[in-house]
Design a protein around this nucleic acid. Structure first.
Lengths: 251, 251
DNA sequence: CATCCAAATTGATGCAAATCAAATTGCTAC
DNA sequence: GTAGCAATTTGATTTGCATCAATTTGGATG
């Protein structure tokens, strides 16, 4: 408590120290015993800092590493031959980006910093070598990848069955709980992404996102000004996400 | 060639033999050297045969095993609290079902046999133990899981950006190429799933699926009678899946 | 501070697909 | 065969959201 949190977050710029990182209870170290942590530190590379809009990696370039977000946030998206973009995820500190690329020799998506963002880099060959030696780390990687599959199944569910309001309420609640796990306010936060990204991610037009935001605001459920969002009535939001199912049951 | 294929497909009912399985170039053995195959056979269990509609595992029950489809086909789906179903995938012989459940202690979805189906069972603790010893197998598991993530990202893309015709054309082409890889006709096959499952998977109403099928039929692109489908003009189908992007580019 | 461009909002209109309704086909079983 | 039920098809109508169009706001830059 006496120790300022800032100190633990900012690691030395040259070598990453997982032991002193404040995210060790969210990130890969979570799975590793104290005395094996050094082996993870041996392979992790202190990534550079990316400014808003900079690419961390690009779709179709050789797949070399997975990246853990250290601070800031990241958006991943796939680009089709026709040039349309589909946002596939938003990543917060402690989350691992690039797992979908484990299936091939090149990145399956593009990762872009949504704000000033720093990352840790895990070269994939070294990481796989280490997971072969540390069963707990291997297990954790399987867990993370399984979770990633589930996440996108949930997204598919949202896209195929839910209304615009339900999709946006779900996203807000998801962000809320992820902020909370990071010791930040679950009701008062600043969206890392633009309305455009939200719309693309949720399969909506920007205009629709905008309209739903103002509708929620008029109903007193949220207060939004630009990217600053305050959740005024979390229960109402949760209710919105279940509206559809409730209606089906009433019949 | 002289050896009948049927012989190699039907393994002994008591013990699974990966070496003699005709799917060894699709399934897990694909990743394993000849002399390590025995170790996989040690942990694989010959699953029972499921009739159409029977559950192979159920969402929220304890996660014990992944299953490789040996013959027949499987549908996975998640059920929400509200009771709505979202089909998350269809699995053909050689494909591994249950990877999304690796993230927790219970199955993340329900797996149902779409027809008379036999499977091989891989107890997850044994499998993880083995992947720790065989780097190639571990690498292959990572590949499979990464591919699974990509698949559902593609599904999300389909759901959020494509029209009903495009979604159905994509599904037909996906099935076609998967049949082809299994040495079956890519243009003449029998759909393992009902219209209802197709609709649910693609985020459409059954009626819409039906209408698109007849529209394709009237255009001479396919010939469909019940579950029997013949692709008469594959190029036209491919064109349909790219219609959207082409229009965007013309502007 | 003024300028410029991108992002966000608000309003009007059109359309693809959902929903509602009904007929037809195809199984399964007796 | 035929009774009965589920799956599929076809038609009519409705609707949520996209699209088009026009402001307004906000952030970056000189």
């Amino acid at each position: 408590m006496a120790q300022p949190i800032r100190f633990r977050q900012a690691a030395s710029p040259l070598k990453a120290s997982c032991q002193q990182c404040s995210l060790s209870n969210l990130c890969l170290p979570l799975a590793i015993e104290e005395n094996d942590l050094g082996r993870l530190e041996e392979i992790v590379q202190q990534g550079r800092i990316y400014n808003r809009g900079e690419h961390i990696f690009d779709q179709s370039t050789p797949f070399r590493s997975c990246f853990a977000v250290k601070s800031g946030s990241v958006k991943t998206s796939i680009i089709t031959e026709g040039g349309e973009e589909q946002v596939t995820g938003f990543f917060m500190p402690g989350e691992l980006v690039g797992l979908d690329s484990m299936s091939g020799e090149s990145y399956a998506c593009t990762a872009k910093a949504l704000e000033r963002t720093s990352v840790c880099e895990f070269p994939i060959d070294k990481l796989e070598e280490l997971t072969g030696k540390l069963p707990d780390l291997q297990h954790h990687m399987f867990r993370l990848m399984g979770q990633e599959i589930q996440n996108s199944h949930q997204l598919a569910l949202l896209l195929s069955k839910n209304t615009a309001e339900e999709r946006i309420a779900s996203l807000l609640l998801s962000l809320s709980s992820r902020f909370q796990r990071r010791r930040m306010s679950p009701t008062n936060f600043s969206l890392p992404m633009a309305r455009n990204d939200i719309a693309n991610f949720l399969g909506l037009a920007v205009e629709t996102v905008s309209r739903v935001f103002t509708r929620f605001q008029n109903q007193g459920i949220i207060h939004a000004r630009g990217r600053e969002v305050e959740l005024l009535d979390v229960e109402a939001l949760q209710l919105v996400t279940r509206e559809f199912s409730r209606q089906s049951c009433q019949q």
